[in-house]
């Protein structure tokens, strides 16, 4: 039992991180904290993929001419490079939206935003009379 746990400790960490991140996304009312949770959640998946590609005793996949050399699988690592880029883009866009939300509502707390929405939910048209003016 203990041996089995010790053998897959990286996957246990993955699950713990994943649940921590997901819990933050769901439970936190602060929009910035939600983004942090999302990042932790995505990072756990990165570690999951990297663990998949690692061979016990394997080295970096650079050919050295020796047929007995054991290599790690580089493909999951490359995939995660792409996923990291996507993750960074998601975080950047999320933070940009939070900035705009803060300007528009004066808060980044979800409950306060909901309260603000209820108190003043009138549309603000850019051009008051639209087509009639033309």
């Amino acid at each position: 039992m203990i041996e089995q746990l010790a053998g897959s400790w990286n996957y246990i960490i993955v699950v713990i991180l994943m649940m921590t991140g997901l819990f933050m996304v769901i439970a936190r009312a602060n929009l910035v904290k939600k983004m942090i949770g999302l990042s932790i959640f995505q990072t756990s998946v990165f570690i999951f993929y990297i663990s998949l590609g690692k061979m016990a005793g394997g080295t970096a996949p650079i050919l050295d001419g020796n047929p007995d050399t054991l290599y790690s699988n580089p493909l999951p690592h490359v995939l995660i490079l792409t996923a990291i880029v996507v993750g960074v883009a998601t975080t950047a866009l999320g933070l940009a939206l939070i900035l705009r939300i803060n300007e528009a509502f004066g808060s980044v707390e979800e409950d306060e935003i909901i309260a603000a929405k209820a108190s003043q939910s009138l549309a603000r048209p850019k051009r008051p009379t639209s087509e009639a003016a033309e």
Partner: peptide, 20 residues
């Protein structure tokens, strides 16, 4: 958001739920 600021919150929620 140019006409209705609630679009920002809607976009944020879609971003987070979609990313999950």
């Amino acid at each position: 958001a140019g006409t209705d600021r609630r679009a920002l919150v809607a976009g944020y929620h879609y971003l987070v739920i979609g990313a999950v």
